[in-house]
């Protein structure tokens, strides 16, 4: 009996495999899909946030959504093609690593609409592409200001994942905020050369706390888990990044510099549904556009008067009165 079941199973498997080929559900409405970068869909960072944005669009705009994960850099191009063939109206590339790929594919497929997170083509943006970038320095600036105000030891820290321009935006925005609030504060800064090694993040944060820092901000993905853990243990403060990370340590993560990739994705979806897809342009999400901000849970640990000052500061950034530095050069300029 057992053998027969197996034999039947074999036959059914093959037959079904072949016949079920054509059964992919066709949806009549607009379809949007995204390719994740190698971080994967559950990176607790921009990939996950992007997918949340798409899911929200699915629910509220009743469109079809989907994603495709990349496990190596070489996967981006084939994944784009897969989504292209699946008949998506808009294909998202999540992450600057897909910059070149998106451009190449967009040139080859002028009828297909593409969009990318964290990459700007400037004047060379193809007409069927939208580049979306965030002013990460702005929320970093605000949390830096909070850190500068709240530090009792006059020492704060920054832990970065890997040193490249995107992460440096977090670093210099933060530093500028700290210096504005507290010109005497000392700022430790260290990179982990990893986005995964939580133990290293913890060791670096421990070192900073031991050297007297009482607030550490991280922009380091999985390494940041270790930073927050160290804050918990030493009963010091940490500042989260990308998403509201307060839930990881409700009494120690005072605030988070949020990057609302989900909002950006949702907004573009809305525009697409309305037929106003902003092809050929770069959309910048800063404080002004509501694309970045500080975590809504900040009120729990940050005193109200500091939050009021932050709100004023935010208004100044929005009005353009303050231009937040985001590179070593602009930061050096700022210090003057």
């Amino acid at each position: 009996m057992f053998k027969k079941i197996i034999a039947i199973f074999v036959i059914v498997l093959f037959v079904m495999s072949i016949f079920s080929c054509g059964q992919v559900k066709k949806e009549s409405s607009i379809k949007i899909a995204m390719v994740t970068d190698v971080g994967g869909i559950n990176d607790q960072s921009f990939n996950q946030s992007a997918w949340e944005g798409l899911k929200r669009a699915e629910k509220e705009l009743s469109i079809g959504v989907g994603y495709l994960e990349s496990s190596q850099d070489a996967d981006y191009a084939p994944n784009m093609e897969t989504l292209l063939d699946a008949g998506n109206d808009l294909i998202w590339g999540i992450g600057f690593k897909m910059g070149d790929t998106i451009k190449e594919k967009a040139m080859a497929n002028p009828d297909q609409q593409y969009a990318i997170i964290d990459y700007a083509y400037g004047d060379e943006t193809p007409i069927n592409v939208v580049g979306v970038v965030f002013k990460e320095q702005e929320p970093s600036f605000l949390v830096g200001y909070i850190a500068g105000k709240m530090t009792k030891a006059n020492k704060v820290g920054f832990v970065g994942g890997m040193k490249f321009p995107l992460i440096e935006k977090f670093e210099y925005g933060f530093k500028a905020g700290v210096k504005l609030a507290n010109p005497d504060a000392e700022i430790f800064s260290q990179y982990a050369d990893s986005f995964t090694d939580a133990a290293k993040g913890k060791a670096i944060a421990n070192q900073m706390y031991e050297n007297g820092a009482d607030i550490v901000y991280h922009a380091a993905g999985g390494v940041g888990d270790g930073v927050i853990e160290a804050a918990k243990e030493q009963d010091k403060f940490a500042i989260g990044v990308d998403r509201d990370q307060n839930s990881l340590a409700p009494e120690h993560v005072i605030t988070s510099a949020m990057k609302r990739v989900d909002n950006a994705i949702f907004n573009v979806a809305q525009l697409l549904v309305k037929g106003e897809f902003p092809g050929g342009t770069t959309v910048v999400y800063g404080l002004k556009e509501g694309g970045v901000g500080i975590a809504p849970t900040s009120y729990k640990l940050v005193p109200a008067d500091i939050l009021e000052e932050v709100a004023e500061l935010k208004a100044k950034v929005i009005s353009g009165e303050i231009v937040v530095p985001y590179t070593p050069d602009t930061y050096a300029e700022w210090l003057k």
């Binding site: 072949i18 080929c21 992919v24 897969t82």
Partner: peptide, 27 residues
């Protein structure tokens, strides 16, 4: 999930277009 459908998608995803076969080879 329906495993037959899943394997169907995989098979189709590998063989149904020349470019898919090409990508498989490149991979």
């Amino acid at each position: 999930f329906n495993p037959f459908q899943a394997y169907g998608i995989i098979l189709r995803g590998i063989f149904s277009k020349p470019s898919y076969i090409s990508y498989t080879i490149i991979r």
